[in-house]
Amino acid sequence: MKRPGRTLAEVLAVLAAAAIAFPLYWMVLSALKPESEVISSDPKPWTLQPSLDNFTRVLTTQGFGRYFLNSVLVALVVVALSLLISFLAATALTRLRFRGRTLLLVMLLVAQMVPVEALTIPMFFLMRSVGDAVPAFGLNQLGGLVLVHLAFSLPFAIWMLRGFVAAVPVELEEAATLDGASRQRFLWQVLFPLVAPGLVATSVLSFIHAWNDFLFAKTFIISASENQTLPLALLAFFKPDQNDWGAIMAGSTLMTVPVLVFFVLVQRRLVSGLAGAVKG
């Protein structure tokens, strides 16, 4: 027997979910509506003439596919590298004792608090110098963009993973060493699987961070339009006099889908992943 309070809570949850997700339904709907209906002053919550015109217009616009691939590539490389580096760095910051460890952890957060807009100019000059030495990581290059995103996703990733590494008892490492496991083996075969839920949670955040970025792509990819990423493609449908809302909503829908897919794939592990971030 269910208590009536529980049923009420479930009804509330469903209603809240409907209200919160409704703007998204509206986004997809606007993308499917013919143009006259999108700007009608009597908006209807359905359409009798759904069409994929807006989507085809977006997809056939010059460069959208290319931008899409660039975005996917940058986001995936950022996720992979930030997982690898943050796992090793978080282990170092949890397990190795050295002078200035706490300071370093605090500085990671401090660097994160600088408004991104204030960092773009110093980063612009840094990237120009890096580009002189290693062209693949300079301005106008996807490699450079990856480097910038790493700088901004690593602090969070490390802070989140620290709790997971700390929750693995030191005795386990001692036991592994006694059994003759090398440091490398311990790292990859014992510790790595144990912190996997944390890795899932951090990879979701890194992915969203890289995928959503607008400012860095706009600032650091100046003259190489073939290396642009997706958020800038949305701008192609902004015109001074008449904005193409149907196409903008179709583009927004297309941009949201990969994040949604990524999230649905990992969502079961995400909650336990976030829980572990606090244990440290």
Partner: peptide
């Protein structure tokens, strides 16, 4: 959770 996944500009 979906609103969190929408690109901020969008």
């Amino acid at each position: 959770i979906a609103p969190f996944l929408v690109v901020p500009v969008a």
